[in-house]
């Protein structure tokens, strides 16, 4: 029989039972748009958290993972902020994914401190639904600050980087993405209220991309 205070901690989502993952979510759930992934996340990403996503290079599904989520978030009259993306996010593709382009905000910075400052401001102010930042988390304290800033509001922070992050990270979700011949291989090294998930293949919309209306493969001339 657990004591009342333990019961309270369980209800607040501060601790979870190892044999009963996914307690009732304490924050708004943001559906990723992929049923198999949502199942592993216990219904979706919890708002007000930071996702650290490591991927080896563009083209392996790093945006496809987020696009359905961003499309839904872009229905809110709040910004979706992109800090220092590696290339230009291509408007026709974002529009085709259902994202309202008027919510997109691109920020380019010039020195090492500014991206962190921008992300922290954007996460704290509450006028962004999601904040995506491409920066290498060289210092664990920076990640902790961003996770803290995200938890103040219902804003989802996503930290995208190519270097492996240090083993301990304050981000609520830690993901590693690898390209694969079919779909992408995703490992959830850390997730809310559940054990880590070893590498698993997810389609992440690749099948639909390859079998879309104009996807017919014609013989090369």
């Amino acid at each position: 029989m657990p004591s009342p205070s333990l019961e309270q901690l369980l209800r607040q989502g501060q601790i979870w039972r190892g044999n009963q993952p996914h307690p009732l979510p304490t924050r708004e759930l943001l559906v990723s748009g992929y049923a198999d992934l949502d199942h592993e996340l216990g219904g979706g990403w919890q708002a007000g958290n930071l996702i650290a996503l490591q991927y080896p290079g563009e083209g392996c599904g790093e945006l496809r993972l987020l696009l359905p989520l961003l499309a839904r978030l872009s229905q809110q009259p709040r910004w979706i902020l992109w800090v220092d993306p590696p290339h230009t996010p291509y408007a026709p593709a974002l529009a085709a994914a259902g994202i309202d382009l008027s919510r997109i905000l691109l920020v380019r910075t010039r020195n090492r401190q500014d991206p962190l400052w921008v992300m922290e401001q954007a996460l704290q102010c509450g006028s962004c639904s999601a904040v995506l930042g491409w920066l290498e988390p060289s210092d664990g304290r920076h990640v902790r600050r961003l996770q803290l800033a995200a938890s103040q509001q219902q804003t989802l922070g996503v930290l995208l980087h190519q270097q492996p992050s240090p083993h301990t990270s304050a981000a609520a979700y830690r993901l590693q993405l690898q390209p694969a011949r079919h779909g992408s291989v995703l490992a959830l090294a850390k997730r809310r209220h559940n054990w880590p998930l070893p590498e698993r293949r997810f389609d992440l919309g690749q099948h639909r991309l390859l079998t879309g209306a104009d996807a017919c493969l014609r013989p090369l001339p």
Binding site: L63, S74, A93, A96, A97, L101, S102, D214
Partner: peptide, 18 residues
Amino acid sequence: PKLNRPAQQPLAKRRPSW
């Protein structure tokens, strides 16, 4: 940037996101 009301988005063909 301008946070206006959602605009009608044209249907685009398959395009890369970067």
